[in-house]
Structures are given as structure tokens and as C-alpha cells.
């Protein structure tokens, strides 16, 4: 998968912020400051992902997206937008974006989402996975059986899906909103630390046996399932 990312953003400070973060995380970044320029670069198709601002001079972000898709380029696109209402998100997703991130956002959230997208693209075409694991934690997707070091763990259906999502993104940070979207399929903001409580319950079940903890809190960002501390 290409580590080349196109950032289409007219605000120089935001573009710098994104580009700097991406470079620090090993990506190569191309930048475009308006819609036409962005479209020109994007249809070349060599990018691993496009980060596209919704409101751009010259050509609106959604129009750029539509043009990219019309040109049969299926590069994953993340839309950045100050228009944060659920309807605007739905509009963005309907227009063909793969993710929609509302400004102001934390870079870690953007990075986490970008990496999920990248993996989604790379697993495309690989044989269907039936078991997921992290260290001595295993999940059988067919029998819905979860074990830690050979001991069976009973999970509620929602806990199972939450763990599955974490396992699929093993060693990568997932944010609270990503979990809300993936596991519950809601895009609104539940306000309180609803997700945190679910995680802490899950943590009690999988990390209770005194072994090395697998479910880590990444401060200010979200959670990560990983063997490494």
C-alpha cells in the first residue's frame, strides 16, 4: 500500500499540522491548496489516501470527491469538515468518502482513521479470516468463542463486536468515535464517557487474570489492543 498521502486543504496552518504529523509517522505528503489542484493530483491514482477539506476555494470538496469517483479512482478519501452535523456526515459518506472527520480534530484521531482505512484497503482480497488474536487472546469468529490463555471468556454480543473491532485493528489506536460508528453504527455524540465504561468492562473480562494487560488506554486519543506495553 502506498504511503503517499494527498492533503487537499486551503488553510495553511491546518495543512502544515496534518503534513507534519503524517511525515513524522512515516508518510509522504503531497499538498494541494484548492479543489482543482487537488483533483488534478488525485486522479493520478497513486496515492494511498486523500485527505480532503470540505470547503475549498475554486471547487467544493464534495464536487472534487464526486469528480474523483467519476474518474474511477477508488483511493480512500477522508473528508475534513467544519460542518459537523450528522446530516452533513451522511452527505459526505453518501458522496463517496470513506470517512468523515469534523474540525476541530485531534491529529491522533485522523491518524487512527487513516490507518484503519489503509488496512481495510490492504486486507481487500486476502482470504477470509476466521480467527483473530493478540498475544494469548484469541477470537473464533465462527463459533464466537473468545479465550485468554486457554480460558474461555464469556462476552455479551456488543462486547464481542467491540473486541472484534479492537482485534482487527491490533496494534493501532482506535478512537471513541470510531468505536461508536463501527460497533454501534451511530454517528452522533453520546456526550458522556459511555464508551469508556464499555471498555473498562471489557478490560475487566480480558485482562483480569493478572497476565500482561492487552487493552491499553492511549491518553487523549482512545484505545489500543496490543501485546507491547
Amino acid at each position: 500500500m502506498s504511503r503517499k498521502i494527498l492533503v487537499v486543504e486551503d488553510d495553511a496552518t491546518t495543512a502544515d499540522y496534518i503534513a507534519k504529523g503524517l511525515v513524522e509517522n512515516g508518510y509522504v505528503v503531497d499538498r494541494a491548496a484548492d479543489g482543482r489542484d487537488g483533483l488534478f493530483h488525485a486522479v493520478d491514482g497513486s496515492y494511498g489516501a486523500v485527505i480532503l477539506d470540505r470547503m475549498l476555494p475554486g471547487m467544493d470538496g464534495l464536487a472534487v470527491l464526486a469528480a474523483i469517483r467519476a474518474a474511477d479512482v477508488d483511493t480512500p478519501v477522508i473528508i475534513l469538515s467544519a460542518l459537523g452535523s450528522t446530516d452533513e456526515r451522511v452527505k459526505g459518506l453518501k458522496a463517496g468518502s470513506d470517512d468523515y472527520l469534523v474540525k476541530p480534530f485531534a491529529f491522533s484521531e485522523l491518524l487512527a482513521r487513516l490507518e484503519v482505512l489503509q488496512r481495510r484497503v490492504s486486507v481487500h482480497g486476502e482470504p477470509v479470516v476466521t480467527t483473530l488474536s493478540c498475544g494469548d487472546l484469541t477470537m473464533d469468529l465462527l463459533s464466537h468463542r473468545v479465550e485468554r490463555a486457554g480460558t474461555r471468556i464469556e462476552l455479551q454480543p456488543r462486547e464481542f463486536r467491540l473486541l472484534e473491532f479492537l482485534l482487527r485493528n491490533r496494534d493501532h489506536v482506535v478512537t471513541r468515535t470510531m468505536m461508536l460508528e463501527e460497533v454501534w453504527d451511530y454517528h452522533f455524540d453520546p456526550g458522556t464517557n459511555v464508551i469508556d465504561v464499555h471498555i473498562s468492562r471489557l478490560r475487566k473480562k480480558i485482562d483480569e487474570s493478572g497476565e500482561a494487560p492487552l487493552l491499553h488506554t492511549v491518553r487523549g486519543v482512545g484505545y489500543m489492543l496490543s501485546e507491547a506495553a
Binding site: 452535523s85 450528522t86 446530516d87 455524540d189
Partner: peptide, 21 residues
């Protein structure tokens, strides 16, 4: 962010936007 988002959501809903979804 949450407060601004909430306020905008209300204005949109009050203006009748969101019926297309």
C-alpha cells in the same frame, strides 16, 4: 466543539434541514 455542534444541529433541525436523510 460539542456545544457549537449542538447549536448548529438545533438550528438545522429548526430550519427543517435533515428531512432528506
Amino acid at each position: 466543539r460539542r456545544m457549537i455542534a449542538g447549536t448548529l444541529e438545533i438550528s438545522r433541525a429548526e430550519a427543517g434541514m435533515g428531512r432528506e436523510n
